[in-house]
Design a protein around this nucleic acid. Sequence first.
RNA 1: CGGGGUGUAGCGCAGCUUGGUAGCGCGUCUCGUUCGGGACGAGAAGGUCGGAGGUUCAAAUCCUCUCACCCCGACCA
Length: 607
Amino acid sequence: MSTDTSTNSPITTRRRGTIQRWSETLIPTLREAPAEAVNPSHRLMLRAGCIRQVGAGVYDFLPLGMRVLQKVSQIVREEMDAAGSAEMLMPAIVPVELYSGTKRDVEYGDLLFKLTDRHGRDAALGPTHEETVTEMAKGSVTSYKQLPLNVYQIQTKFRDEFRPRAGLLRGREFLMKDAYSFHLDIEGNGGLNETYDRMYQAYVNVFTRCGLDFTVVEAEAGPIGGSASHEFMVNADTGEDTILVCPATGYAANVEKCEIGERDWAFAGGGDQPLEKHHTPGMPGIELVVEHLGITADRMLKTIVFQKVGGTKCKWVLATVRGDHDVNEGKVRDAVGFQVTIANEKEAKEAGFAIGYVSPKMASQDDTLLLIDPDATAGTWATGADEKDHHVTGFDWARDLGADLPTKDQQGGKIRVADIRNAEAGDPSPRDASAKLEAKRGIEVGHIFKLGTKYAEAFDFSVLNEQQKKQTVIMGCYGIGVSRTVAATVEMSHDDSGIIWPVPIAPYHVVITVMDPDKPEHASVAEDLSEKLADNGVDVLVDDRKERPGVKFKDADLIGIPVRLTIGDKALEQDSVEFKLRGEEGKGRLVEMPHVVQEALSKLVGG
RNA sequence: CGGGGUGUAGCGCAGCUUGGUAGCGCGUCUCGUUCGGGACGAGAAGGUCGGAGGUUCAAAUCCUCUCACCCCGACCA
């Protein structure tokens, strides 16, 4: 490697690329993937020598994987800095008392990695740092004049997942960028919304620069309401999250949060079928009953029992949806206006609910509300018999529940009709009545959130405003799963031969395959080309191994470097090298020596 | 946490039913022949058979316990 004095200055706008000889680094490629790896990203990153598994959900990043991680981190860093956030670093070890202030030690439960030190003090490995950062800001921000403030860190996070899986996609230890902002107001100059919008744009920039195909979806509304939370989802068929998109308006939301457009409903059932009781022993689930009764799930009612969170006495909430639909707890909460949770089975049974065999008729009980999804109204139904091991057929709302039923003009009583289920493909769009929602799969790589005053209140973090009045600070938080973004990229961008890294986050931009490193002319051409490329900011991997050509080509494809230059006798005879893009078929084309660098640059910069 | 599965050489696997010297392919090392899409020949190294206990003259194999990992589900700011 030559010494370029101009790059030795600490102040420079030039970036010189890296030159790495394959023989001097560690890229242990595997012909076969370990049996436990199932997902494309897991298998390929293992095979490409990017990562190695150490334990469940815990991985080594080998040099190649580390370089990708660094590239993503660097893009994140640049965009965060540009958006006015200041980098800092908080500890991974967080005293558990910090969490008890916000009850998050309870909320997180077993998800929190806990440890005890030699003095018997309890601590946690941070899964995120709202508490730590709030405590830090409380001690450092003493005047409204210091607001707004936005800080971030890129750090290893820990979550003791019940079931780590899919390699880097859901690990127990992962790299995350988390940012937190502090404000006096929500609106206006320096307000939360301004920073939130800036973060939104920064995230769009980050994922666009990473070369990802992604969708921004609306997520849980949060304490402030409105569109106070957005998730950034990489579009990949293997994603764990389902998102729904309105093709007409561009509205997109996570399945858990997705609204459904207006649906018509009525309780007209006919009432011509008799109510008939059936013995259905040991069949609390829909599938078994449906099979036993010889009907389909969309002719059954599913009634889930919820209970009010907090308050002195138990308030029950029944949620009835069609058998093939899923109740959405958040929508139930919104419909009744208070926090709910799935009923404790024991308590519910003591209150008379035959869990697994509950019917809407239980709404006649005291302290019980009934919510009915529009799709579960008209018709004749099979449902539980409110008695263990029994179901009924021929249930008719009007006949069997009668006078208590609401009408479209009269809502708000003990029984209400409301959207309480998860949206599905084909449902009417909430933004355009004529459009139907479409379902896609995605991998969540970013989440921005308007926190409001939850943490500031818990930590009593307030400042004096211009009117000398004490004011609680308003916060926002913004996360990017850096290691997950790397894995999501591979899920999205690979073929049968291996990974296809987008140029901006590829570990190297160019791999120079030296056919015979023992031949001086091969070696010197490789040397010359890599120097010129590096001078132009290109990261170069020189495959100088004494391997057969086939092995080198297969490995180059596997590790997914965007441009491959092959140096061999055939091309050298014509003073050329072979030029091939990772996605292209075949051997590539000859490019004359003087044009190689320019050709590589144009392909790399162009896309 | 419920259900299922797997632990035998770096990776992929056989052997276990019916107990008796631990095997195959790939990879690794040496020598030779090869050399443009995972070569060929000859030779070599490498294994507490996940761990502990038990049965037995004898355990990878049978029994008990235990640990780890994976998959499905549940869960997932």
